[in-house]
């Protein structure tokens, strides 16, 4: 294949499922389910993260996410957001598997409410148990190449390091460790959390990540649907730049016009 054909056929595969879009979007914090669905559409995402929560038994007929985002067309990735122990996360995902009927899940086990930083000891423990039970966990983690390797060895099907704290929009704080994780990983790596605007997403892709997962950057934009489009373009641009191979940086100027033939 030529480089051009490579780019046309660009896709990524996680746990045997192949996707064209490298953008995964969350479904939290939107003003309405309509706006949420429009943003997912504009983002081109083929995977959305969802939470598992109690049905409101005093009003069970409230509109449901599944009425607006069709799980037959868009892959639902159940998440364990809000879980602070391995046990809570495992319990949540067992229920998610029963509700959805699939094994591909997102694991996150948080260490504290202030930073929402992952608790890696609990995360690793939960990963081991989930893999034994037949789950295929995509795992949210710290941007630490050693922790990432340990998760992969435990059977994580994707490594998802944070770019910055969840919901902070601060952008990728440590490009060096994200790149080290990408270089060392044998499974897909996706930056999960911390993206604030389109350039952050492009940067993640330029570092060689297989994808980017975000929620707040789109949901809390003044115009979420427009930002969803921006993120789609940014992820594609960053991916193309990575495939193209960027120029070397120089310390000083280098003229673009030939020096020969100057009048």
């Amino acid at each position: 294949m030529t480089a051009q054909q490579d780019i046309e056929a660009d896709s990524w595969t996680v746990a045997g499922r192949t996707f064209t879009s490298r953008l995964i979007v969350g479904t939290g914090k939107y003003k309405s389910l309509e706006e949420n669905a429009a943003a997912v559409e504009a983002s081109g995402a083929e995977i959305v993260t969802v939470a598992v929560r109690r049905v409101n038994i005093s009003d069970p007929n409230q509109p449901m996410l599944t009425d607006y985002i069709d799980p037959k067309k868009i892959t639902y990735l159940p998440n364990t957001a809000g879980c602070f122990t391995a046990e809570d996360a495992i319990r949540t995902l067992r229920l998610a598997r029963e509700a959805g009927g699939w094994n591909l899940v997102k694991l996150e086990v948080l260490g504290e409410a202030k930073t929402l930083y992952p608790d890696m000891r609990e995360t690793l423990r939960a990963t081991e148990t989930l893999v034994k039970e037949g789950f295929e966990p995509m795992v949210y983690c710290v941007d630490d190449p050693i922790a990432a390797k340990q998760l992969e060895e435990a059977g994580a099907v994707a490594i998802m390091p944070l770019g910055a704290p969840i919901g902070s929009g601060l952008g990728i704080q440590n490009r060096v460790t994200i790149r080290l994780i990408v270089e060392g990983a044998g499974v897909p790596v996706l930056v999960d959390a911390g993206v604030g605007t389109a350039s952050d997403a492009a940067q993640a892709m330029e570092l060689g990540c297989d994808g980017v997962l975000m929620n707040t950057a789109i949901a809390e934009a003044k115009e979420p649907v427009v930002m969803a489009r921006a993120m789609k373009a940014a992820v594609e641009a960053g991916r193309l730049a990575y495939l193209a191979g960027r120029m070397q940086k120089r310390r000083y100027a280098d003229p673009s016009s030939p020096l020969a033939g100057l009048i």
């Binding site: 969350g26 479904t27 939107y30 969802v50 109690r54 049905v55 998440n79």
Partner: peptide
């Protein structure tokens, strides 16, 4: 009993 379903989340 706990009865759960999917809702919007990150």
């Amino acid at each position: 009993f706990e009865i759960v379903h999917f809702v919007g989340g990150g």
